[in-house]
Design a protein around this nucleic acid. Structure first.
Length: 260
DNA sequence: AGTACCACCTGACGGC
DNA sequence: TGCCGTCAGGTGGTAC
């Protein structure tokens, strides 16, 4: 799931459930989601603290703790959050459990263990150290244009490169390019200014709308690719079949008739 | 600076 | 029922 819109939905979910509550205890159930920090440190440092707010950068979620540190969550390909009271509701692949003093629990769930949890003093320093690009929804047009014009390779891999633009993954890059009528294999450098502008506008529209629809494909307009990806595999415009091609190892869906 | 390929992981699905 | 290959909305390393 977790591209920019998914993580924004997680953020809203967290904000409406888990803020300003004292943490009683924390359990790490898998060490594989930890890269820079030990389970002992998390289990020792978080109890007694509260989450005061949240910030999203691309696909990363940062939770601001009341000691000014940041709990960083990345969701890999299969992660999400769940807030619940009864332990029977604890999801199957819970990897970290935050137990609040009010009796509720927040689970960080990550089936394939490709996500990461970390606790840092300075989130901006981490963003810089890990060379994360500007968040896709925070990026102005001129910066976007410069990035696209300077990149070699396909427009799809340019959009998905987190080092330049943070937040867009396989699904939403397909959707943005479908809406813009641009073929994902098109060389970024060869795009004219009108097309770059169109892609930029569609990037904003698609990501914003996806958040509004709570990333639920059933709520997307029929004119979007997403609802058709897992069903009829047909282009809602021309009704021809979507083609599946490989671009830098990922499966891209494309309508050869509507995208050039 | 690109791409191709592998690795990290778990699990679902189709073919035999 | 079981085994096997393949694939999955992410990312990082390596070789070319």
């Amino acid at each position: 799931m977790p591209e920019l819109p998914d993580v924004e939905v997680f953020r809203n979910y967290l904000d409406s459930t888990s803020l300003n509550q004292s943490i009683q205890s924390v359990q790490l159930k898998s060490l594989k989601i930890l890269k820079e920090i030990s389970s002992q440190e998390l289990e020792k440092e978080l109890p007694g603290r509260k989450i005061l707010g949240s910030h999203r950068h691309g696909k990363h979620l940062f939770l601001r703790m009341d000691d000014a540190r940041w709990l960083m969550l990345h969701f890999g390909m299969t992660g999400f959050l769940k807030y619940f009271e009864r332990m029977e509701e604890d999801p199957k692949h819970d990897r970290m459990l935050i137990n609040f003093e009010n009796g509720f629990h927040l689970a960080y769930v990550c089936q394939r263990l490709l996500g990461e949890v970390n606790l840092v003093e300075d989130k901006d320093k981490l963003i810089q150290e890990r060379e994360m690009g500007r968040d896709a929804l925070e990026m102005d047009y001129n910066t976007f244009k410069k990035i696209i014009q300077e990149k070699r390779g396909s427009i799809k891999s340019a959009l998905m490169n987190q080092k330049y633009i943070s937040g867009i993954g396989n699904i939403y890059s397909d959707e943005i390019l479908f809406q813009a009528g641009v073929h994902p294999k098109k060389e970024a450098k060869q795009l004219g200014e009108a097309k770059i502008k169109k892609i930029y506008q569609e990037m904003r529209t698609v990501l914003t709308k996806a958040i509004e629809y709570h990333v639920d494909p059933a709520q997307f307009p029929d004119s979007y690719m997403l609802p058709h990806r897992d069903t009829d595999l047909r282009c809602p415009r021309c009704h021809n079949s979507f083609q599946q091609i490989k671009i830098t190892g990922r499966t891209a869906y494309v309508c050869p008739h509507c995208q050039e």
